[in-house]
Design a protein around this nucleic acid. Structure first.
Lengths: 216, 216
DNA sequence: ACATGCAACACTGCATGCAATGTTAGAAAC
DNA sequence: GTTTCTAACATTGCATGCAGTGTTGCATGT
């Protein structure tokens, strides 16, 4: 019989902190002092230390020497680099997904996108959430474990960055791009899907390089 | 004045173990028991534990419940996934490098490739080393921190996999592909560089999917 | 010879102690 | 009011203790 290893406290703490960073409850600059978190969460310092170290390796936090880690918002040049990796990986994810995506997943994507197309363009919280859900579903549809793991990491950082800077590129442009991606996926056309996904991200990279202030 | 944080024991241990895995001194299956390593390296278990955890997150080791971690060779489907991510990221690295690469780096690449073209095709150790150096230099020439970090991880796993399976695709094909990539870089042609890099990796993916026995 | 049971062992993950070191706030001096 | 010194404080990374749990190998019985 298969056996699932017991849940590790360190893993739970990591997920807990990661979630709080992604929702913005722990915004960039928030301190992640191990003793304080351990006391607050009612566990010892060891698992908390593991969790914080992992957040640092994920790029969601940065160490300030002998002062503990803080939630991290990469500076603009690092975001450009992040978006280059994102373009490559999301392109490949769309390519792979195009071949194998199921009708059920296509329907889910359409539901998310249709909702996205109808929201108040000023409702950034909802925009970020729907955007993340769309990209997450394509990522998972690619069904490629390494790709999924790397995109999880990138998309986490993207959410923090979107929340802190105006790099959405506008809700309408985003949903138009998403519609193009979904159309290509619906036609199971890998080349078109990759091109559409890369075009979407590379447009955002362009905005970023011009100062990240082009939203709306 | 800038201050470089003191070297952490855990980091040294991680680099030490990583190097031993990449050289094959610790082959897939080798046990990474924390107490044993700590005793052998003359440090306590804490930094060794950190190092092993990081190796697991890097994909170079896998945990066997309550028996410690062992050096990991991903099964074939996971390698295909690894190569999909590799294709996307190496393609983007070549694209970025094409714009910014210096004449000095081009000369270095040519030196590595020229040496590679002249080796005994049966000298796999040297083939793996020269192959890794070529890809590493392009990766670094891309000068994109996120891309570099992710490709470091992928290329580490690739070295382990090459050492254990016949997926080089043949020394001559490899150097021919590399020559095409270097030509595109020399012409500072991003599209051609990306296409050549992706073509190189995707050919290897094909070999992998057909059973990984097509070397020579 | 082979299966079974059991005791010794090994390893993990979490808790906690500790020395080193950076930070900070307040008192003291100017 | 501003600067300087200093002492208390906080945090880190490493060391080590410990309970829980899986593994291993040997003795024992059939």
């Amino acid at each position: 019989m298969d056996w699932e290893p017991p849940v590790r406290v360190g893993t739970s703490v990591h997920e807990h902190l990661r979630a709080k960073i992604l929702t913005g409850e722990l915004p960039p600059g928030a301190r992640l002092a191990v003793p304080a978190l351990a006391k607050q969460l009612g566990v010892s310092r060891s698992p908390v230390r593991d969790a914080v170290l992992q957040l640092v390796r994920e790029g969601l936090a940065i160490e300030e020497f002998n002062r503990g880690a803080v939630v991290y918002l990469p500076p603009q040049p690092a975001l450009v680099s992040l978006y280059h990796a994102r373009e490559a990986l999301e392109g490949m994810a769309a390519r792979l997904a195009a071949s194998s995506i199921s009708d059920a997943t296509l329907a889910d994507l359409d539901a998310v996108l249709t909702e996205h197309e109808s929201i108040d363009p000023d409702d950034f919280h909802r925009h970020i959430d729907l955007d993340a859900r769309f990209h997450r579903q394509i990522r998972d549809a690619a069904a490629s474990p390494v790709l999924i793991r790397m995109l999880e990491e990138i998309q986490g950082q993207v959410i923090v960055a979107m929340r802190s800077t105006n790099l959405s590129g506008g809700v309408h442009r985003a949903t138009a791009d998403h519609r193009a991606i979904l159309d290509a996926l619906t036609q199971h056309d890998p080349d078109a899907a990759e091109a559409a996904a890369r075009n979407h991200i590379s447009r955002l990279t362009g905005i970023l390089e011009q100062g990240g202030e082009a939203a709306q």
